[in-house]
């Protein structure tokens, strides 16, 4: 088993790139012996949410803008930072509890909620771009 690995991606703002980025990250997590549940649920869903938010909300689906992804994986955890060219957002204010009765029949509004349910840490900050950082502790 490798001891640590880092990956860097830059993709255009096009949702068709998401699945391939997610696939490569899951593949590396598998090599680090992450649990089947992490490989089939936590990592792909949370990363897909972060990427689609960056593409559709951060970069407003503008193909001229890029999304950058930095991934660090080791035996203890996965850390992913997704940077877009948008102005950022208030993570707490934008997150709604998708399980409340009034939200249950909504078509949208589950992305940030799922990210926070599936990751051990989610934070957003500005660092020359808008960054969402996800941390998953290996089981």
């Amino acid at each position: 088993m490798p001891t640590a690995e880092s990956l860097d991606f830059r993709i255009p703002s096009d949702v068709r790139y998401i699945e391939e980025v997610v696939g490569q990250v899951v593949q590396r997590c598998r090599a680090m012996a992450f649990s089947p549940r992490h490989l089939a649920l936590n990592v792909p869903v949370a990363l897909t949410e972060a990427l689609s938010n960056a593409i559709l909300r951060g970069n407003l689906d503008d193909p001229a803008r890029s999304v950058e992804v930095r991934v660090e994986i080791d035996h203890a955890r996965l850390v992913v930072a997704v940077r877009d060219e948008g102005g950022g957002f208030d993570l707490a204010a934008c997150t709604t509890d998708a399980t409340l009765p009034e939200n249950l029949v909504r078509e949208d509004g589950r992305g940030l909620y799922l990210m926070q349910q599936l990751m051990d840490e989610v934070e957003r900050y500005t660092d020359g771009g808008n960054v969402v950082r996800l941390v998953l502790i290996r089981e």
Binding site: S6, L7, D8, F9, R10, I11, P12, D14, R16, Y17, E19, E20, V21, G23, Q24, E68, R70, E72, R77, V79, A81, R83, D120, E121, E123, Y125, D127, V131, R133, V135, I137
Partner: peptide, 29 residues
């Protein structure tokens, strides 16, 4: 889960510099 892992509160990473993009994606996946 974070508490079980020692309650680690990780700082903003200093490595967040995208100088080299070592992995490519085609959008065809």
């Amino acid at each position: 889960r974070a508490a079980r892992a020692g309650g680690a509160c990780l700082a903003v990473p200093a490595w967040f510099i995208f100088a080299n993009f070592t992995h490519t994606v085609t959008g065809a996946g």
